[in-house]
Design a protein around this nucleic acid. Structure first.
Lengths: 198, 198, 198, 198
DNA sequence: TATGAATGAGACTTCATTCAT
DNA sequence: GATGAATGAAGTCTCATTCAT
C-alpha cells in the first residue's frame, strides 16, 4: 500500500515537527510523551507505532532537523561570492532560521548539546548532526583552498563559527539582548571573518 | 557558635563540590538527591538541612562555581601584558580549569546552559554567572578603551570569546578532538584575537 | 461454500498451531496478539475474525491439543498387551510427543496448569482436557478391572501417572537432566508400574 | 542501628508473606505492585525500598518459601522410622503445609513452575528451590543406601515423589477432588512407596 | 544535626481490541 | 475476508521531599 506508506511517513514528520518544538521549548525531561500526544491530538499508544521510545524519537528528530538546517546551509555554500560575504550570509541565514523556525536551532541547544546521554548510542561521532557539520566543513576547506581563510585545524575553526552563532541565539532566547537578533548580523560576521581570514 | 557556623559552611561547600561533579557528569535530571547523599556518605534528609530543594542546590552551585571561575579569570585580567597575550592566557586558563576541575566548566555546559527552567527564578539576567560575565566585560572594555579591540557591542564580543571556549571543551568531553585540548590553545587564541582586534 | 469453509478451518488450525507454539515457548502473558499475527504473516485484525479474544484462542488451543494428545494415548490404550508393557509404551509415547511436538505438552505445562484464571469459564471440571483425562481413566479402570492394578481412587492414580510424566518433561525443558529424556523411559515406567500394580 | 535493621528485616518478611499469598492466589501477572502495596497498607514506592523489582521480589519469595518448606521436610528426614512410614509422613506433611499455608505450595505451582522467564537469571540450576530439592535428595539417597529403595537415577525418583504431591494439591485447589485432601494421604503414600521400594 | 523509611504523583511503555478502509 | 493505525487503560518503576525518631 503505497498510499498508506505515504500517509504514515507524513504523520511521522508531523510528530517530529511537533515533538521538536516541545522539546526545544521545555527541554527533553520536561516534555512527556502524553504532552506530545496531546499536542498532536493523538493517543500515547499510537505514538509508539511511529517511534520505539522517547529516546528514539529524540534521535530521529535530531537527524531530520540536522538535514533541514544542513540543506539551508548548503544553499549558502553553493552561491558564488567572496568569502567575507558568504560568512555574512551564513550568519544571516542561521539567525533567520532561529527566528522563523526557532525549534530547529533550539533543539540543538536544548536537547542535543545538553542531554548527551540520550545520544550516546546511535549518534557516535556526531552522526546525528553530520549534515550540518559537513556544510561547515565544506565552507572551511573551500575557503582555505582558495586562500581566503588561514590554514588551521578543523575544530577550532568550527567552534569559532558555531560558538558565536549558537551563543547569540541562546542569548536572544533568554531575552537579554539589547537589540533584535538580526541587527547583530554584521558584528558577528565581522568577528568570524576576522577570526578566520588569511 | 562561630565554629559551628564554620563547620556548617565547610560541609555546605563539600556538598556543592560533590553535587556539582555529579550534575556535570550525569546531567541534572539523571542525578538524584539520594545519589548526591550517597556520594557524600550522608542522609538525604540531612541534605535538606543545607539546601531547600534540588533547584536551590543547583542555583547555589552555579553561584559558587561562577565565583571560582571568575576569580581565576580576574587574575588574568589583572596581569599587565598586551591584549593578544592576554587572550592567549585566558584561553589557556579556561582550558586548564576544564582539565583540572572539569566539573566547573561542565556544570556550565550541562546544567546551566541547558536546564534553563531551573534558573528561571533567582538567576534573572544571568545573576548566577555574574562573576564570570563581569570579568569578560572588564577584559573587553579595557581592550576597547586601550584601542586594542575594535569598538563593538558587548554580546557579539562575549559570544566570540565564550562560544569557541565552551565549544572546544564540549568537543573535548565528547572525545572527538584529534589532539589534546591544550594543543589547541594557540589556534583558538589566534581566532579570538583576529575577531576582536582593532 | 464448503470449500471456503474448509479453507477457513485450515487457517484456524494453522493459527492454533502457531499460537500454541508461541504460548508454550514464552508463556501466555508474554505472547501478544501482534506477536501471533506476525508469526503467521497476517494482520491482527484478521486474527479476530477467527477467534473472539485472546482467552478464547487459548481455550480453543487447549481443546484441540488435548484431542491430539488424547488420540495418541488412545492408540496405546487400544493395543493388546499386558499392563506393565502398556505403561512403558504410554511413557514412551508421552516423551515422544514432548520431543517431536514440544508445544503440545508444554502448552499444558506452561499455559493450562498455570494460568488458571483463563480457563475458569468454559473449561469447568477440566472439560478442556477431557480427551486426555478420559484416556488415562480408561487405562486405569481397564487395569483395575483386569486385576493388573490395585483398586484405588482415580485422582491419586491419575497424579501418579501424570505427575512424573509432566515433571520429567519439565525438567528436560529446563535442561537439568543428565541424560536424554528417552533414556529415562524405563525407570519412569518402572516407578509408575510399581506404584499401581496389584 | 541494629534495631532499625531488625525492623526492616521484619517488614521484608511481611512483604514476602503477603506477596507470596497474592501471587499464589492470582498468579504473577495478575498481581500488580499496587495490589501488593495495598494489601500491606503501604505505598508502592516504599515497596521498592525493599525489593529492586517485581522479579526480584518473586525470586526472594521463592528462596524464602523454599527454605521454610525445606525445614519442614528436614524434620521428617531427621525422624527415625522405617521408610514406608517416612514416605507417609512426608505426604502428610506436604498436604498439611498445603492446607495450613496454601500460599507456600501454591507459589511453587503457580509462579515458579510456570513463569520460568522470571527465574531465568538468578535461579540457575534450581538454586532458588535448593532447600527443598536437597531434602528429597537426602531422603532418596538415605533410602537407597539402607536398601529400602531401589537404586535409580535421581530425577525419575524425584518426579515420582513431587509429581503426585504437586498434582494432588493442584487438583485440590481446583476443587475437583471428591474427598478432603488429607483422606488421600494413604493412597498417595502407598503409590510412592510402591514406586520406590526395593 | 542526622537518619532513612515512607509517600504519592507522575513518568515511560505495553497491548488487547476496534474499525474505517 | 483482510489490513494496520488508533485507542486508552493499566502496569512497572522513579524520585523529590517529608517527618518521626
Amino acid at each position: 500500500m503505497a498510499i498508506r506508506q505515504t500517509l504514515k511517513e507524513r504523520k511521522r514528520l508531523k510528530i517530529i515537527r511537533t515533538a521538536c518544538r516541545l522539546f526545544a521549548q521545555r527541554g527533553y525531561y520536561n516534555t512527556t510523551m502524553p504532552d506530545i500526544a496531546h499536542a498532536l491530538d493523538m493517543s500515547v499508544g499510537n505514538l509508539y507505532n511511529y517511534f520505539e521510545s522517547k529516546e528514539d524519537l529524540a534521535k530521529e528528530i535530531m537527524l531530520t532537523v540536522s538535514q533541514w538546517v544542513g540543506e539551508r546551509l548548503k544553499k549558502v555554500n553553493e552561491l558564488e561570492m567572496d568569502f567575507k560575504e558568504k560568512i555574512r550570509l551564513l550568519v544571516r541565514s542561521f539567525f533567520e532560521i532561529a527566528l522563523e523556525e526557532p525549534e530547529l536551532i533550539n533543539y540543538f541547544l536544548r536537547v542535543f548539546l545538553v542531554n548527551r546521554e540520550i545520544f550516546k548510542e546511535g549518534c557516535e561521532g556526531f552522526a546525528c548532526v553530520a549534515s550540518v557539520v559537513t556544510e561547515i566543513m565544506v565552507l572551511l576547506s573551500d575557503g582555505i583552498e582558495k586562500g581566503a581563510f588561514r590554514d588551521q585545524s578543523f575544530f577550532p575553526a568550527f567552534t569559532t563559527i558555531m560558538g558565536p552563532l549558537g551563543g547569540m541565539v541562546f542569548l536572544n532566547n533568554e531575552g537579554v539582548l539589547e537589540k533584535p537578533l538580526m541587527e547583530y548580523v554584521d558584528e558577528v560576521a565581522e568577528n568570524i571573518w576576522g577570526a578566520l581570514k588569511a
